[in-house]
Design a protein around this nucleic acid. Structure first.
Length: 489
RNA sequence: CGGGACGUAGCGCAGUCCGGUAGCGCACCUGAAUGGGGUUCAGGGGGUCGCGGGUUCAAAUCCCGCCGUCCCGACCA
């Protein structure tokens, strides 16, 4: 039946809806190996846009790209006590090579701190060799028990930055700089607002001094950690003899940071912006921003309309009103597929703007423009079309961020007055709930146990309440912090 | 690893209780008409019914064993 074509609605079953969008928008597919994922061209195109934007920003912040090996000697993981505890259980280990049992097993990197800092140790002698600011684009493997397309796969793609500095303050500034960079990307490219802040001890990266996070709210009101930046202190420098001679002549351990974002961002995009018709992509991230659908009835019309559609495409792609960022346009000239079917398909795939061009439009020297985000249609004159389209795309970009922010604020509670009320909020539809915390890990654990909610972060200044709660939500003791609670992916 | 469900065409499923020639929808191929929001009609291709064993004249169906997947928990970007 025609019902096969319909998506499960978000309200009915968010998880089923999410999987359907990812599969049917051809972002990804399941691989023969459980928990791994094949990223299809449509999904990889979005990831490439993300990569390009992030890579540019990371380089502008003074970093260079390099590449370190996939295999890490197993003993490296064991050098930092907390790190091995965090990652050994989910490590994939190679025991054989060339048909022989290996003398030392090789771990497929779950993250590259150990291999990278062991190399930095060779490269650094003097404070003059610092800072080292390196980023790499790579894949990593973590043997998760349960997986989910894009959000948690056994293998995933990411960028991981690894820096070494002469002082704590410099490393701290670096970690904060990257956090701000991530937030800028998530908000201004992905149109996905995030709350930034610092993780609690129980939620921080294994081996870090402090972990900073970007927390996004998905449409089912669950939180998703979209990116992290760690001040590693001297923990890895001590484990890998990463030392330098200071200006004063003393031998010091370097201070490290590491930070990364992953293909999870593609999943975050779907769960932030998708609707009951499929994916919505903010124009800046869309591999194709505009699709032109010519409409014809006869062969004579077909030739005329295709020619017109190509002319419109050329006028858009050749326009330079956006500097070195030409409009990304595609003409859907397929025969045997009705226009309506094309509309549904491009909507499912999230193309921001559709231009319908039929005989009636051509007579009026106009075309019909349909926004993916609001599904509003308007007629645009072909004269001056590129500037109008670019303006419309920019407005869509802004509107999507605003809408996502409004949704988050509508589902955020500045602070719960009682633990009962808190539990009701968290166990109900779910939300971001800000509350007072006395700083005791036991309280954190108790709430997690009872409600499945975790402290997402101690939010940065700009996210805190104007009048923060004075008391700990659970114990009633004076509150040491205001924290953000949520159920999370 | 604990609790639950499922495994039949590329995808989604019915058929299993009560054994008797392998079915439906979508997708795909051919032809014609159609074409401004998922076209219609006609024809067609595609299956060791997860694997192995057993019962039976006869097994997708009943019995035994194995394997795999998904969902709920513990772990996580």
């Amino acid at each position: 039946m025609a019902d096969d074509k319909k998506l499960t609605t978000r309200a009915e079953d968010f998880s089923a809806w999410y999987n359907e969008v990812v599969l049917r928008a051809e972002l990804a597919d399941y691989s023969p190996v459980r928990g791994c994922m094949v990223i299809r061209p449509n999904g990889y195109g979005i990831w490439e846009r993300m990569q390009r934007a992030l890579d540019t920003a990371i380089k502008a912040a003074g970093h260079e790209n390099a590449y370190f090996p996939l295999f890490i000697p197993e003993s490296y993981l064991h050098r930092e006590a907390e790190h091995v505890e965090g990652f050994a259980p989910e490590a994939a280990v190679v025991t054989h090579g060339g048909g022989e049992l290996l003398a030392e097993p090789l771990v497929v990197r779950p993250t590259s701190e150990t291999i990278i800092y062991s190399m930095y140790a060779k490269w650094v002698q003097s404070y003059r060799d610092l800072p080292i600011l390196i980023n790499q684009w790579a894949n990593v493997v973590r043997w998760e028990m349960r997986t989910r397309l894009f959000l948690r796969t056994l293998e995933f793609l990411w960028q991981e930055g690894h820096t070494a500095h002469a002082t704590h303050d410099e490393a701290e500034a670096e970690a904060r700089t990257i956090l701000a960079l991530y937030r800028d990307f998530m908000e201004n490219w992905m149109a996905m607002p995030v709350v930034t802040g610092v993780k609690t001890a129980s939620e921080k990266f294994a081996g870090a001094l402090r972990t900073y996070t970007c927390e996004a709210m998905m449409q089912d009101n669950k939180a998703l950690q979209a990116g992290t930046s760690h001040n590693l202190g001297q923990n890895f420098a001590k484990a890998f003899d990463l030392t330098f001679q200071s200006e004063a002549g003393t031998i010091e351990h370097a201070w490290n940071t590491s930070w990364g974002v992953t293909t999870r961002l593609v999943g975050a995009l779907v769960m932030t912006h998708g609707d009951d018709n499929g994916l919505r992509t903010p124009p800046r991230l869309a591999p194709i921003e505009v699709v032109i659908v010519p409409i014809w009835k006869s062969d004579e019309e077909r030739g005329r309309l295709l020619e017109a559609a190509n002319r419109v495409r050329d006028s858009l792609t050749q326009w330079r009103g956006r500097g070195e960022d030409p409009l990304r346009v595609r003409v859907d000239a397929r025969e045997g597929v009705k226009p309506g079917a094309k509309y549904y398909e491009w909507e499912l795939r999230g193309i921001p703007l559709r231009l319908e061009l039929g005989p009636r439009d051509l007579e009026k020297q106009a075309c019909m423009a349909a926004r993916r985000d609001t599904r509003e249609k308007q007629s645009l004159p072909l004269d001056g079309l590129p500037a109008a389209v670019a303006g419309l795309l920019q407005r869509m970009q802004d509107d999507m961020l605003r809408a996502a922010r409004e949704r988050r604020e509508a589902n955020s509670v500045r602070h719960a007055v009682s633990y009962d009320e808190f539990r009701q909020l968290i166990e109900g539809p779910g939300a971001f709930v800000y509350a007072g915390w006395n700083g005791d890990p036991a309280v954190e654990a108790k709430v997690k146990e009872e409600t499945k909610a975790t402290i997402r972060c101690l939010p940065d200044e700009e996210f805190r309440s104007p009048s923060p709660p004075a008391r700990c939500l659970v114990t009633g003791e004076p509150a040491a912090h205001e924290v953000l609670w949520a159920r999370a992916y």
